[in-house]
Amino acid sequence: MLTRIVRMTFQPEKVVDFLAIFRDSENKIRTMPGCRHLELWQDADASHVYCTHSHWDSAADLDNYRRSVLFGQVWPATKRLFAAPPLAFSVYPAGPDSPTTSSPPTPQ
């Protein structure tokens, strides 16, 4: 399972617009193939900063969503509201079941 976190800093006066976009699209995103979970988090110290937290069966499922018509509607509308570039990253659980195919480099 792949976890995707996207941290977004909005123009404070545009937060209401973002929340409307998110509320309108969240259930559609949740029904995308491979999406297992989607949450919206608000920063504890900066009320205009939000993160989406989602779980995907695979990186391919996330990529398929990112190439979808839905993403093509949601993301451009969201980007117009930013006060700073977003920070996005994907992670896998670490451990013996990790999907990585190579060993980490040996320390010198």
Rank of each mutant, 00 (worst) to 15 (best):
F71S: 10
R80M: 10
H48D: 13
V91S: 07
E26L: 08
A59E: 09
L2C: 03
V16D: 15
L62N: 04
P76C: 02
L38Q: 07
A44H: 13
F18I: 05
V74Y: 06
T100Y: 11
F18S: 03
S47T: 14
W56F: 01
T31E: 12
S58V: 01
I5P: 01
I21K: 05
F22Y: 15
A88V: 07
D57I: 05
D97Y: 13
S103I: 03
P105N: 00
V15D: 06
M8N: 07
D17K: 12
T9N: 07
P33S: 02
S68E: 00
A59I: 12
F22Q: 08
Y92F: 10
V6E: 07
A94Q: 07
A84Y: 06
S58W: 02
V16C: 12
Q42F: 09
P96Y: 05
V15S: 11
K79L: 13
M1E: 10
Q108G: 12
L40D: 02
I21R: 06
I5G: 01
T52W: 11
L87T: 14
F18Y: 15
T106H: 00
R67G: 06
T3D: 04
E39A: 14
G72W: 01
A94I: 10
S102Q: 11
E26D: 09
P93G: 07
R30K: 15
Q11L: 14
Y50W: 10
T100C: 06
S68V: 03
S103Y: 05
A59D: 11
T100H: 11
F82Y: 08
V49S: 04
P107F: 00
K14A: 15
S25L: 07
I29N: 01
M8C: 09
S25M: 08
P93C: 07
I29F: 03
R66S: 08
G72R: 05
A83Q: 10
S47V: 11
A88R: 08
P107T: 02
R7P: 01
D17F: 05
P85R: 09
K79A: 13
W41L: 15
V16Y: 13
M8S: 10
W41A: 14
W56T: 00
P96I: 05
T101N: 04
R30S: 05
P86W: 05
S25R: 12
L38W: 08
K14P: 02
S102V: 12
F89G: 06
A88M: 07
S58L: 01
K79H: 12
A83E: 09
Q108P: 15
D63Y: 10
S98H: 02
R23S: 14
Q11R: 14
Q108M: 09
T9G: 02
I5M: 10
S54E: 06
S103W: 04
S58C: 00
A77G: 02
W75K: 04
A83W: 05
Y50K: 05
Y92N: 03
Y50E: 04
P105L: 02
M8K: 10
V15W: 08
T78I: 03
L2V: 12
R66G: 01
T106R: 01
Q11S: 10
P107Y: 00
